[in-house]
């Protein structure tokens, strides 16, 4: 049995906002099947009540002083934008026609 199907890859691509081609879906399904079968090894080792580690350092709640600092001016912030209008980022529509 394969670990991951082509339909699952298509679903994951939608969740990841990746408009993949049909041939990419086929190729990825085959490759991910191999990779997922290999990395499933973690399940053999990680048994019982071992606490998870999300991080290498035992740091929590690092704060900086709440002081105003210089930031980017509008020209700097917009310098790399694909489209700009009236000192703002111009983006494609985010609501459907019926909205």
């Amino acid at each position: 049995m394969s670990a991951i199907t082509r339909d699952e890859v298509a679903h994951l691509a939608r969740l990841s906002r990746l408009a993949l081609h049909e041939d990419e879906l086929d190729q990825l399904a085959a490759q991910l099947d191999v990779i997922i079968s290999a990395v499933a090894k973690v399940q053999e080792v990680a048994q019982g009540d071992i606490p998870p580690s999300s991080h290498a350092l035992p740091l929590t709640n690092v704060y900086r002083p709440d002081e105003a600092r210089p930031g980017l001016d509008p020209d700097q912030a917009l310098a790399g934008a694909p489209a700009v209008e009236d000192e703002r980022f111009r983006v494609p529509r985010i609501l459907g026609e019926e909205a």
Binding site: L12, S16, V39, V45, S53
Partner: peptide, 28 residues
């Protein structure tokens, strides 16, 4: 793309504990 899809899979509801969760235990 391969790693984004793989990561999205490992973090998906239903697979999270088996993959990402177990991997974090191995990290410990």
């Amino acid at each position: 793309k391969r790693r984004i899809i793989l990561g999205t899979y490992a973090l998906s509801s239903g697979y999270y504990d088996a993959y990402y969760g177990s991997a974090q235990q191995v990290r410990t």
